[in-house]
Structure formats: C-alpha cells, structure tokens
C-alpha cells in the first residue's frame, strides 16, 4: 500500500464525506454561536470595565484575567464533567458554547477596550458638549470609529474560536474532528482525518488572509 492510497483513499473519502459534512455543520453551529455570544459578552464587559463604578470594574477585571489564563480544554472539561456534581447538566453542545463564549468574551473585551481607548478624548468631549446621552455618544460616535480599529483583531479572535471548536470532540460532540476520528475508526484508514484537516484549512485560510489584508490597509492609512 503506497502513501497516497493510505492518506488520500478516494473510495474511503467518498464513503465518509457525508459524515464529515455533518460534522462541519456542527462545528459551524458551535463556532458561530460562540462568536456571536462572545462578541456581545465582550462588549458588555469592556463597557463595564471602563465606565462602571469601581465596585463593578474589579470583578470584571478579575473575570477577564481568569478566562484569558485558563486553558480552554480544562474549562470545557470542568463545564461538562464537573458541573453535573452541583446539578448543572449541560448538553455537549451547550458545554462547548458556554466554555468558548466565556473565554472569547474575555479576549473580545480586551479588544474592544483597546479600540475604544484609541478614540481621541476630543470625540468624547465634543459629544458631551453637544448634550448627547451616553448611549448616543457610544452608538453614533465612539463605536463606529472603534469598530474599524477592532475588526482585524476581532477576526483573529473568530479564527481562534473556530479552531478551538475542535476541542468539543472531547465532550462527545459530533463536530468535524469527532466525525473524522469516528470515520477513521470505521474505515480503518486515516483519509477522513486528512479530509477534515483540509476542510478546516478551506474555511479558515481565507479568513487568515483577510486579516492580513485588513492589517495592511490599516497600516497604510496610519502612515
């Protein structure tokens, strides 16, 4: 059996392809849900971290530090295997989404904070001098400018979340990686694993090049 036969076995790939695609759909569901809820959580955390009274700021700072320090795999296993001991039983899907969101929210909060802090003080002063409410100032003046700054690092974070969805296979979630390993066991051939790797590359590579392009454009504008 030559190398090609082993790793790129076409009949095996054809047979297991539907399995991989169903895995991809699960992966996308976990990833997109976690990304969106992480963005909302992160924006909220960033605003509290910057503008809330000190009593609220401190716990949020601690939260952000903890969830940027803890390994995602450890967190996921705690959520799935440890929380049931105190009566919190989450499905594999929810466990994965919760763990990914908690961590992504912490990173996103720091990204938003950096973006908002990059807005010149004069923009806040001009808004306040015009009598704009806090909400209008953020929605009309500050966030639209901050968004442009944070898009490259946010896209980067999305890529990381998408990659980290593969950890969900540990809690028996039938995501792309889990389906691939199962298909490999069934077919007694590693082609499904290679197929899964190629699928990951196929949708993450374009995102990576997109980030580079954003960053180049920002650099040019800054110059």
């Amino acid at each position: 059996m030559d190398l090609f036969e082993t790793f790129f076995n076409v009949p095996v790939l054809v047979r297991t392809f539907p399995l991989l695609i169903s895995g991809l759909i699960v992966t996308l569901q976990i990833g997109i849900t976690s990304i969106v809820s992480g963005l909302v959580l992160g924006l909220g955390l960033a605003l509290v971290r910057m503008y809330a009274p000190a009593a609220l700021r401190l716990p949020v700072m601690i939260y952000i530090d903890i969830f940027r320090s803890i390994p995602l795999l450890v967190l996921l296993i705690i959520v799935y295997y440890a929380l049931p001991f105190i009566g919190i039983r989450l499905s594999p899907f929810l466990s994965a989404v919760v763990a990914l969101t908690l961590v992504s929210g912490a990173y996103t909060a720091e990204i938003f904070r950096a973006g908002i802090q990059a807005i010149p003080k004069g923009q806040f002063e001009a808004s306040r001098a015009l009598g704009l409410s806090y909400k209008d100032m953020m929605v009309d003046v500050v966030l639209p400018q901050a968004i442009k700054i944070v898009i490259p690092p946010l896209t980067n974070n999305c890529i990381n979340v998408m990659k980290d969805t593969a950890l969900a296979s540990v809690v028996a979630m039938p995501d792309l990686l889990k389906q691939a390993t199962q298909a490999q066991a069934l077919a007694a051939n590693p082609t499904p694993l290679i197929g899964a790797a190629i699928i990951y590359l196929a949708f993450l590579w374009p995102l990576v090049t997109l980030v580079s392009r954003f960053e180049n454009r920002l650099n040019q504008r800054g110059a």
Binding site: P120, G122, Q123, E125, A126, A129, L130, G131, L132, S133, D136, D140, V141, P144, Q145, K148
Partner: peptide, 26 residues
C-alpha cells in the same frame, strides 16, 4: 455649545451629518 481648539469633528460622518447629529438625537 462649544467650539474646540482641535475642532473635534466626527471623522466618520459627512460634514452634513456632523451638523445634523445632535439636533436629531437631543
């Protein structure tokens, strides 16, 4: 009203929108 040394216009809005924003919101 206040006019600043460094203008502090909103750079992501057209001149027209800069002038329209506060009357619409406030």
């Amino acid at each position: 009203g206040m006019v600043f040394q460094s203008f502090n216009l909103f750079p992501h809005m057209s001149v027209l929108k800069n002038v329209m924003l506060a009357p619409m919101r406030v």
